[in-house]
């Protein structure tokens, strides 16, 4: 594993405590439409960052698996994709609740919403593929091929979809947002630590799941 020791777990806890405290108690700028819901920036947006980082790590692990054939890479790839899906679902849910109050409905066909829904479909299919293969080596190799291919197609999707329709997201299509020019410098102080904190939490969960899967495998073996 890349992250050795426990320093990053402490860092993760510290950053997340800071995020929650400063996120709920800190001063936020008043913006039209958004009002207090602007605080979702600290919780919803980092879910996406976490998801993308986890899925990226998963496909890198798949590449390593194909190159070296080490079992641990496959295990990491599948568990990171798993956590990535959880982050994606959390991102969708936090976004939908927020959208209900700011845009008026849970689902408004926003390109970012659609892209993430498609992302979920791709990675759920990845697990169906894993489930339908019996032989562990074959399972690892074939799902690695799919994982890399899927990620390579997910990236253009994230860039193409927004070109087709206007986004309702803050910062797009004339909505007030957190773009470089109006992301308040006070909000940055919470937002960047929040992204790092939530991403680290994602890797922590992945780490624990990897250990669980190792134990399960050992128990099956006996």
């Amino acid at each position: 594993m890349v992250l050795k020791g426990f320093w990053w777990k402490i860092l993760c806890m510290a950053l997340l405590s800071y995020t929650i405290l400063a996120g709920f108690l800190g001063v936020v700028p008043r913006r039209f439409i958004l009002n207090e819901s602007i605080r979702n920036l600290y919780f919803h947006v980092p879910m996406w960052f976490g998801m993308i980082f986890l899925l990226l790590a998963s496909s890198v692990a798949s590449i390593l698996y194909l190159k070296k054939g080490k079992n641990r890479h496959d295990r990491f790839a599948s568990q990171a994709a798993n956590t990535g899906i959880v982050f994606g679902i959390l991102g969708l849910v936090t976004g939908m609740v927020w959208a209900k109050y700011t845009w008026g409905s849970y689902w408004s066909g926003d390109p970012k919403q659609n892209a993430s829904a498609i992302g979920m479909l791709i990675y759920l299919a990845y697990f169906v593929l894993r489930g339908s293969l019996e032989d562990p080596q074959k399972k690892a190799r074939i799902s690695a091929v799919y994982n890399i291919f899927a990620f390579a197609m997910l990236i253009p999707l994230l860039f193409i979809l927004p070109r087709l329709t206007d986004s309702l997201h803050p910062g797009n299509g004339g909505n007030p947002g957190f773009n470089s020019y109006d992301l308040d410098s006070n909000m940055r102080k919470v937002f960047y630590p929040a992204v790092v904190g939530w991403t680290l939490l994602g890797f922590w969960i992945t780490d624990i799941r990897i250990r669980i899967s190792k134990i399960e495998e050992a128990l099956d073996y006996e």
Binding site: I118, L121, I122, L124, A125, V128, L129, Y146, F149, A150, M153, P156, L157, I160, L161
Partner: peptide, 10 residues
Amino acid sequence: AILGFPIILP
């Protein structure tokens, strides 16, 4: 279908 359709969307 489930592997191909989401990938082919873009």
